[in-house]
């Protein structure tokens, strides 16, 4: 999607940021999860605007598909409380918002003032190019990630397993 215009970018950015802010502020965790799904979908749209169609598909499959379902199951397996705001926010929450705003400002200034080596035209890697990179040059990290996933699955099963009554 070359020549992606800036006004459209603002709309896409709003689709990412507004659900994220809502997600942190909702008291009901199910609402938060729905807002999180909206934000993840927005991130997939951002990937499409950056010529990363394969990643957008992976984002939809993994985040919107798998991880959201996992989180929804975790929410439904546990009992949620309702009530006053202080039950949902820490005591230090009043300081967290200004701290986050300062973090965003510092990151924005530092990233915005950097000198970047632009490509003459946007890079548009094909799936074949990506897979060649992933299975030739980056084959070792790829295999290591599979090991990490295996260990994580085993650990998650072990942690979440109900212990037998003694």
């Amino acid at each position: 999607m070359n020549g992606f215009s800036t006004p459209l970018f603002y709309i896409v950015a709003a689709v990412v940021i507004i659900p994220a802010v809502l997600m942190v502020s909702f008291r009901n965790l199910i609402y938060s999860a729905i807002a999180m799904i909206a934000s993840f979908t927005g991130v997939a749209i951002v990937f499409i605007t950056l010529n990363a169609e394969l990643l957008a598909a992976a984002q939809l499959l993994i985040y919107v598909g798998a991880i959201s379902i996992l989180i929804l199951f975790a929410i439904m397996l546990t009992k949620q409380r309702s009530g006053e705001l202080r039950l949902f926010f820490h005591r230090q929450a009043w300081a967290a918002l200004p701290a986050a705003v300062i973090l965003a400002a510092v990151l924005g200034v530092v990233l915005g003032r950097g000198k970047y080596n632009y490509a003459p035209k946007p890079q548009n890697p094909t799936t074949a190019q990506l897979s060649r990179l992933l299975f030739n040059q980056y084959a070792l990290p790829f295999e290591l990630v599979s090991l990490v996933l295996l260990v994580a699955i085993a650990g998650a099963v072990l942690l979440a397993k109900r212990e037998k009554r003694r």
Partner: peptide
């Protein structure tokens, strides 16, 4: 920053 806010503020 929004994510960091949530990590610090929510219980």
């Amino acid at each position: 920053a929004v994510g960091a806010w949530g990590v610090v503020a929510r219980r």
